Simulated assay, not measured.
Amino acid sequence: MTTHIAPPVTDAPKPVASVRHPVIRGIADPAALGLGAFGMSTFLLSFANAGIFPGAAVAVLGLGLFYGGVAQIIAGIWEFVQANTFGALAFVSYGAFWLAYWWTITTPGMLAKAGPGGMGTFLILWAVFTAFLVIPCTRISVLLTVLFSAAALTFVLLAIGAYASSSVITRAAGYTGFVVGILGLYGCFASVVNATWHRTVIPLGSRE
């Protein structure tokens, strides 16, 4: 009679999104993709808003559609699978923002029809949405708290710049946008490095 021995159970570490939202076995942490898409798209657009490379406003359209938009929504959908409500809401919402931005810019006559008031209101609503996301960020990490605070300020400045048709205020928004972009890319880098090393190598200031 042959005895079948069960394979040994291993406690080898696996990538972890957070203590509260552990990565499901076989599914990678979507935060790396989401933060990369959020950060890179914002960083490129900020070159145009800051008046450094005006052509970046055109160059960002493809990036914003496919990376900031589609890829970020994919990351958000997988955050739903991870039972991470914050990540799902944030990534799907900002992915939709980039799709809406692309559609508004590329649709003939859309900007003219919206006018300063329409675009200003569009941006201020995103500022309000981003501002209330800062509250849950304070329970997640220092990085996200600072990132979303800077993003809310950027939206406020962009809205004021649109309402007032002020290039000076829009340029200020461009520089705060650089902060948002850098923090997003830092979060992407930290997420993928920490997941690869199975431990915290790059700090995020986790509060969970």
Rank of each mutant, 00 (worst) to 15 (best):
M1C: 12
T3L: 10
H4T: 15
I5N: 04
A6D: 02
A6S: 03
P7I: 02
P8W: 00
V9E: 05
T10S: 12
A12L: 07
A12R: 05
A12I: 00
A12V: 03
P13W: 06
V16S: 14
S18I: 10
H21M: 14
H21S: 11
I24M: 14
I24V: 15
I27P: 03
I27M: 11
P30I: 07
A31Y: 03
A37I: 10
A37V: 12
G39T: 08
G39L: 12
G39I: 13
F43W: 09
F47S: 07
N49Y: 09
N49V: 04
A56Y: 01
A56P: 03
A57W: 02
A57T: 02
V58C: 11
L61E: 01
L63N: 06
G64P: 13
L65S: 08
L65I: 11
F66V: 09
G68P: 05
A71Q: 10
Q72C: 09
I74P: 01
G76T: 04
I77M: 04
I77T: 09
E79R: 14
V81N: 11
Q82R: 15
A83Y: 10
N84L: 09
N84F: 07
T85I: 05
F86G: 08
A88Q: 03
A88M: 04
A90P: 11
A90T: 15
V92R: 03
Y94C: 08
Y94N: 06
W98E: 15
W98T: 14
L99Q: 12
L99M: 10
A100T: 13
A100F: 15
T104C: 13
T104P: 11
G109C: 06
L111P: 13
G115Y: 04
P116D: 08
G118I: 00
F122R: 04
F122M: 08
L123M: 13
A127Q: 01
V128C: 07
V128W: 01
F129M: 09
T130F: 07
T130W: 07
F132R: 03
L133K: 08
I135P: 02
I135K: 00
R139T: 03
R139N: 02
S141F: 01
S141Q: 04
L143E: 02
V146D: 04
F148C: 03
F148A: 01
F148R: 00
S149G: 05
S149L: 05
S149A: 13
A151L: 02
A151S: 07
A151C: 05
A152Q: 11
L153H: 02
L153E: 02
F155P: 13
F155Q: 13
L157A: 00
L158K: 04
A159T: 08
A159R: 12
G161T: 02
G161W: 05
A164E: 05
S165A: 14
S165H: 11
S165Q: 14
I169F: 00
R171C: 10
R171F: 12
Y175K: 07
V179C: 12
V179A: 08
V179S: 10
V179M: 11
I182L: 15
L183C: 05
G184W: 09
G184E: 15
G184T: 06
L185G: 07
Y186Q: 12
Y186L: 08
F189S: 01
F189C: 13
A190I: 05
N194Y: 08
T196F: 13
W197C: 11
H198R: 15
T200P: 09
T200V: 15
I202F: 03
G205T: 00
S206T: 15
S206A: 15
